[in-house]
Amino acid sequence: MNKQQGNFFSDTLVMTKRSIVTILRNPLIFIPNLAISMFFLFVYEAGLSGIANLPAFEGANYLAFILPVSIVSAAIGGAGGAGQALVKDLDNGFFSRLLLTPSSRLAIVLGPIIAGMLQLVIQAGLIICVGFFLGLEVAGGAWGVVVVLLLTLGWGLAFAGYSVGVALRAKNAQSAQAGTFIFFPLIFLSTTFVPYELIDAAWLKVAATINPVTYLFEAMRTVLIDGFTDTWPIVLGFIVIAVLCAITITFSAVSAKKAVSTD
């Protein structure tokens, strides 16, 4: 029988398929994740929609404004689950077995990362459906929804890449969990609840400017509220997310190389 170095794409595909199967076999982990992100959409809309009457909103629909927050924060469960899956692989010795195969280290980390990303995209799709049910109107139309989902895809890859990298460094569930706390400053030190102009504290303005998530929010809000009249925030959103993906996925692949020892 022949044995050979597998090819990168088929390895990644096989790894991803396996990660998806293990996610689906643990519904108690992914169903609460789905539920919680929709819950946030409900409470934000119910509790905060009044502030859309402020002039800075220029008559925008608050639902369209807050929807990106719901999508981006869903990543902690969906894409963040990729890191937890990796900790499990490290614990039961399966990760060592993966490293002993001829597949590239990048393919090995991409499996859980892509599976985590897909989970987030599905969550985002459901959130958007719930949004429509609550009366969401998308200025960018069907293409607007596609753009939002593409941005979500990028964000999913970036966040899953980060969580896998952290899991590989930490090698245990607690530290990996602690690593996901970076998520809170990312989500909340931004234009989370009100537009940039309405942020009062100077330090928060600075934080929002350097926070990559701000550009993700802006890109999504642009297509949702204004459509495609001004494309620069959308392009900028894609650029920031692409850079973020490159950084976090490289981080996870490099960490895989270093995670091999049991020292």
Partner: peptide, 24 residues
């Protein structure tokens, strides 16, 4: 290895097929 390397969420057959796929 000393510690077995098995993903408990996969079936015996799936694990063997998975492993074989990674070896080309």
């Amino acid at each position: 290895l000393q510690e077995t390397g098995i993903d408990p969420d996969l079936k015996g057959r799936e694990l063997l097929e998975f492993q074989a796929r990674l070896f080309g």
